[in-house]
Amino acid sequence: MKTRIKELRARYDLTQEDLAKKIGVRRETILFIEKGKYNPSLKLAHDIAKALQTTIDELFIFDV
């Protein structure tokens, strides 16, 4: 699964740590989601999308 988290973080000038603090997870979790090594729960995906002012559909690109 690919994500646009890095791109949107850059748009809002947020570091991984800033985003992690906003949604209450560890920095490594953001890192692994960005790298596609960890699939977040629906709640976490929703929280990230909300923090980056977008939707889950816009944030995650599902490879079929």
Binding site: G24, T29, Y38, L44
Partner: peptide, 11 residues
């Protein structure tokens, strides 16, 4: 210390 949680859903 950084204000992040000690454990999250991934851990």
């Amino acid at each position: 210390k950084k204000g992040l949680p000690a454990q999250d859903e991934r851990l």
